[in-house]
Design a protein around this nucleic acid. Structure first.
Length: 453
RNA sequence: GUGGUUGUAGUUCAGUUGGUUAGAACGCUGGAUUGUGGUUCCAGAGGUCGCCGGUUCAAAUCCGGUCUACCACCCCA
């Protein structure tokens, strides 16, 4: 071995054992999505840079993986641009494609492109990898999967309610205890308006978002550093201090924001949504959290974030409503709302809490030991019968030593082994061994199929 | 992108002030056991000490660079 092969920074290989676990997550999520009438789509790994650039802010543009043009791309660069050594200008001349950064923007592009074929409201789900040229850390990768559900072309808050139900359903099935935090961008905008800093909504929300992490004092400090007036910060304090149930907070906000039209709109939306939610039978806790901001700046209404209760990990699911995502692609006034499940983080939570199921549909249930040609011929029809009955079964492909074959079954966690040699053939039977208990018994082909089915 | 920590058999880690042939455990392979794995016993294989360069008579050990994983910031799933 001269040089060990490797994979790019922040990417991962998945072993069979890991894939079984990952598929468990993806399968339960898909199952729930279908239950609510969502249908799958897929989009290409790469998009034109023109559809990607400028959608995630300046920071996002930097984190996009760009793909070099084919052919002799350098020859086509004009001499002055080449001489300038300006990365941004040069990039635009040597790269026109990039890897997708999330699933929402490609979805918006998809909706605009096929608007005449799509029946609205359009409910789709999409489970695919996305790429970000971020610096990796634990639980943060350069290639990771997102599981998105969105409904586009409907303003009804019933959609928001159903998303909450989906969250409850998914994490209920995965047996993760969660808290769903909900806020509304219109309320945040209203707050900015009331304290006289309408222009600084983004700075204010980004700062407020850190309240839980860095504390009130540092939040105030950051606000004044960003240029928010002392007076405005003063006015913000009682709002940050709001306490009580979600309904109580909403009542108080209604009074505080009475002078702001958008603020009141947001309060009304939250009233309706929480009224819906109040009538649901949920396991998950749901609360209004005014400090929830969420980074992506295309959200315009409700915003969601889900945290696992017993695991020290960031949010495992998040999303919100965006009123005009398709506008940038030339289709205005189409509102959508959606959420995204973070598969890698859910994986980490399930690992931490040891919640992966022991049994899996993806592993072998029974293995036939191979004793030679005559014995193979005796086993093969039964093997086929088992598979017809949907029993995952295999025969060891070689007449290897018993020890090697048993070891193979053991390493693969195969719960049953069938031994059929000369004596079994003479009796017309099979020896079925339970690998966990070590117990074995002599059975007919019919009994064998019955036991394992 | 900025700052920091890290790297030694497949894995987890020892390795003295720089000094001869770099160790252990687990795992792996073979045997004890020719129809019985997961337990036990015995034997064996496996390393350009992340990579490149420098200092030195001599480098796993000191210095620089680079890559990787990780940590904080930024941002985010």
């Amino acid at each position: 071995m001269a040089q060990k092969p490797s994979i790019p920074k922040g990417t991962r290989d998945f072993s069979p054992a890991e894939m079984v676990k990952r598929n468990y997550i993806f399968d339960t999520i898909k199952e729930v999505f279908r239950l609510y009438g969502f249908q799958p789509i897929e989009t290409p790994a790469m998009e034109n840079l023109s559809t990607l650039m400028g959608k995630y802010g300046e920071e996002g543009d930097k984190l996009l993986f760009k793909i070099l043009n084919s052919g002799d791309f350098v020859a086509k660069v004009s001499a002055d641009v080449y001489g300038e050594k300006d990365s941004v200008k040069l990039t635009s001349q040597i790269s026109e494609k990039g890897l997708r950064y999330d699933l929402t923007v490609p979805f918006a592009r998809f909706v605009v492109q096929y608007r005449n074929d799509i029946t609205f409201p359009f409910k789709r789900y999409q489970i695919q990898p996305v790429w970000r040229a971020d610096r990796p850390q634990k639980g943060r990768y350069r290639e990771f999967y997102q599981c998105d559900v969105d409904v586009i072309g409907s303003n009804s808050l019933l959609n928001e309610m159903e998303l909450v139900q989906i969250i409850d359903d998914v994490f209920g099935r995965l047996k993760i205890n969660t808290v769903v935090k909900i806020n509304n961008r219109k309320i945040l905008a209203g707050i900015a308006e009331i304290i006289g800093e309408t222009q600084r909504v983004v700075d204010i929300t980004v700062a407020i978002d850190k309240l839980e992490k860095i504390g009130l004092e540092k939040v105030n400090l950051e606000l004044s550093e960003k240029g928010v007036s002392d007076e405005a910060i003063e006015k913000l304090q009682p709002i940050l201090a709001l306490e009580g149930s979600s309904a109580e907070k909403i009542d108080q906000l209604e009074k505080i924001l009475s002078a702001s039209e958008t603020g009141i709109k947001g309060v009304e939306e939250m009233k309706t949504l929480f009224a819906y939610i109040g009538n649901l039978d949920l396991q998950t806790e749901v609360e209004l959290d005014l400090t929830l901001a969420r980074g992506l700046n295309y959200y315009t209404g409700a915003i969601f974030e889900v945290k696992a209760k017993n695991a020290a990990i960031g949010s495992i699911c998040g999303g919100g409503r965006y009123d005009d995502l398709t506008g940038i692609f030339g289709l205005p006034d189409v509102s959508g709302v959606g959420i995204s499940f973070g598969a890698e983080r859910i994986f980490d939570v399930l690992t931490q809490l040891d919640l992966f199921p022991q049994e899996s549909l993806e592993t072998t249930r029974v293995m036939f030991v191979n004793f030679g040609e005559k014995e193979e011929a005796y086993c093969l029809p039964v093997l086929a019968q088992l598979r017809k009955n949907n029993v995952n079964a295999e025969i060891f492909p070689e007449n290897a030593k018993m020890k090697k074959q048993m070891n193979y079954a053991n390493k693969k966690d195969i719960p049953f082994v069938v031994l059929a040699g000369e004596s079994e053939i003479n009796e017309g039977k099979f020896t079925l061994k339970n690998m966990e208990s070590g117990e074995q018994k002599s059975v007919t082909a019919e009994e064998l199929i019955k036991i394992l089915s």
